[in-house]
């Protein structure tokens, strides 16, 4: 049985993500305090909400989580969870997990913010997470900020909304999607399945 932990840091709706993993035969545990002893095969940091508030509620899990991920535990950050892969955000104070170099910045003034709706993925580097995902696939976004990384090799796909921004981050066992795979129809399903496969292997 593959066991995936979802870290609950008060960001709201975990039901959709949980059921969409359970539909795929995964045992899901929701925790507000991650520890390595939980022996998960993978961990997901979901999220809608504010960067600063999230860093505070993540604090009790942070040390163990950083250590587990650095020693290879598959990690998927979704939306705000993908932004928390980085250290700082323009949105608020607080320190993220700092797995990758870069910072989280606001979408440009030239477009309606939040970026809400279906947009395309331009795949830069397919890798394991985007296996069988076609170029220009549609995925569902809801966000006002995006991660601007200096680590170009970690950008697996980009989207274009007033600016070209990283929509999928992938570096070794660390993954992030700025969109919501659990709300992205069949494309999102493929991506979640791929993450589960990564957890299994």
């Amino acid at each position: 049985m593959t066991r995936v932990g979802i870290i609950d840091y008060g960001a709201g709706n975990l039901f959709s993500l949980k059921t969409s993993l359970e539909r795929r035969g995964v045992v899901v545990e929701i925790t507000d305090q991650f520890s390595k002893q939980m022996n998960f095969d993978g961990v997901i940091l979901p999220g809608v909400g504010n960067f600063g508030a999230a860093t505070k509620t993540l604090e009790p899990s942070k040390e163990e989580l950083v250590s587990a991920v650095k020693s290879g535990l598959p990690f998927l950050g979704i939306c705000l969870g993908a932004q928390l892969i980085f250290k700082r955000s323009e949105e608020d104070e607080g320190e993220g997990l700092a797995f990758l170099d870069g910072e989280v910045v606001r979408l440009p003034k030239s477009v309606k913010v939040p970026h809400m709706g279906w947009n395309n993925l331009e795949i830069a580097k397919r890798g394991e997470l985007l296996k069988d995902v076609e170029d220009n696939s549609w995925v569902y976004f809801v966000h006002s900020y995006y991660p601007k990384t200096t680590d170009n090799a970690a950008v697996a796909a980009i989207s274009d909304y007033g600016v070209k921004f990283p929509a999928v981050i992938a570096k070794k066992n660390i993954f992030g999607t700025q969109f919501h795979p659990e709300k992205s129809g069949p494309v999102g399903a493929v991506i979640l399945n791929n993450f589960i496969e990564i957890c299994r292997s």
């Binding site: 039901f15 959709s16 969409s20 539909r23 709300k183 992205s184 129809g185 069949p186």
Partner: peptide, 11 residues
């Protein structure tokens, strides 16, 4: 709502 959320993967 629960029943619907179980089967949907769109908003």
């Amino acid at each position: 709502v629960k029943k619907v959320a179980m089967v949907l993967d769109i908003p």
